[in-house]
Design a protein around this nucleic acid. Structure first.
Lengths: 130, 130, 130, 130
DNA sequence: GTGGTCTAGACCACC
DNA sequence: GTGGTCTAGACCACT
């Protein structure tokens, strides 16, 4: 798995890594139960401090995306079933409110906006034979 | 115009205010050319320091949402024409990629996801008779 | 004489008025010894507070551009000979340093830059028959 | 890089710093990609509050002159390409109008005026071998 | 009255 | 260590 980090981005590095791992799970690039690189390995690959990777893995674990075994390292949670909680739906609604307001004011038509959303959702929502 | 601030949120206060003002412009609650409260007035209303509001207004000005008059204060830019730049569309695509990945993995169905998006976009995209 | 004021400009109104009066003197639109409108007249014409006009006239007087008579009002100094002081040349040099740096970095060629400067200087530097 | 600040100037401190940084970029004293001092370091060097420097850096960032990394601090934008927009040319023309009017009236000859302008532009527009 | 500038000091997030 | 956020209070410029 390749990670593309923008070091000059406003988005913190640890957040960029989290985003890309979650996207890779959604797209099937990372299978459930698959091993992730070790903290030091990934840090070296990207060229960042290993504390940053550590933070990523710990947050992913807390949110249920991965499991961490003392010995075997980190793997994508084989029993992954992230929950569609009420809080998450509220958060989702709130963030969509913000995004769609600016998109609307910037002249992104409804059709164009829905197309972007659908295209991206569909990129994950495929029948995966693994 | 009423602002609801979550003081315990991870989202900075000034960002919450910015979001809500842009949403209010999109929904028509704030008309083009309409005056906003003075920095000190709004700060007092919310119960925060006026420098925080000042920061909001200055950022909104630099992004073209409002104009600041020396005496009369701040108003929604009467000639508002936010641009649908290539950079903005790339930013939009990127953020939708992240959001839809998590939504998909949390079991938000395509139908449900598209409904949330459509509902929120439509809340701005209405023919307003005033 | 017509004044064009941009009320939403970063440049203070009093400064805009000063600039335009000095430019009008340089272009010959305002002759030496010519009367300027009264404070209240000009304020009413522009639609601003008369204190602002008062400030303009007082500064113009201090800098020697106009003379103020109790009765006859304000007129362009008939004996105008603004001085090319050492301080003024230093100020001029400093401001040109700032302007040309940004122009250069923004890709304004030397030819283009010199043309803009020459065109504007020449617009004043004409043989005026009055 | 040395900064000379006039504390008794009408020009705000943060503006003086901005001007000098942009001039240093134009003159090549600051190379693209070069690091700037940290906000606190520069503030201490000049003897001002770090918030003032912070404001400078943030404005320079929003105008595209520098990039701010989360950890490594601030550097001159390595991909700097300030644009010669229509708005900038209008601004430039307007400010030159004001400056040349006063220079003309103060007896700065066309030759002298053009010399000052050319000298300063040329100080940036040199083939730099480094 | 309005916003703009500057100072001072606190605490936090990131790496 | 870096910058980011927020508070608090002062003084100034403009209208």
């Amino acid at each position: 798995m390749l990670l593309y980090i923008q070091f000059d981005s406003e988005v913190p590095i640890y957040q960029q890594i989290k985003n890309q791992i979650i996207r890779a799970i959604a797209s099937g690039e990372l299978k459930l139960g698959e091993d992730l690189p070790s903290v030091r390995q990934l840090a070296a690959d990207i060229g960042i401090n290993f504390h940053t990777v550590n933070k990523v893995y710990n947050q992913l674990k807390q949110e249920g995306w991965v499991v961490i075994h003392r010995k075997s390292g980190v793997m994508i949670n084989p029993d992954l079933k992230a929950e569609k909680t009420k809080e998450y739906i509220e958060y989702l609604d709130e963030i969509i409110k913000n995004i769609s307001a600016e998109a609307y004011l910037r002249g992104v038509s409804k059709e164009e906006f829905m197309n972007i959303v659908e295209k991206n959702y569909d990129s994950y929502n495929v029948i995966k034979g693994d």
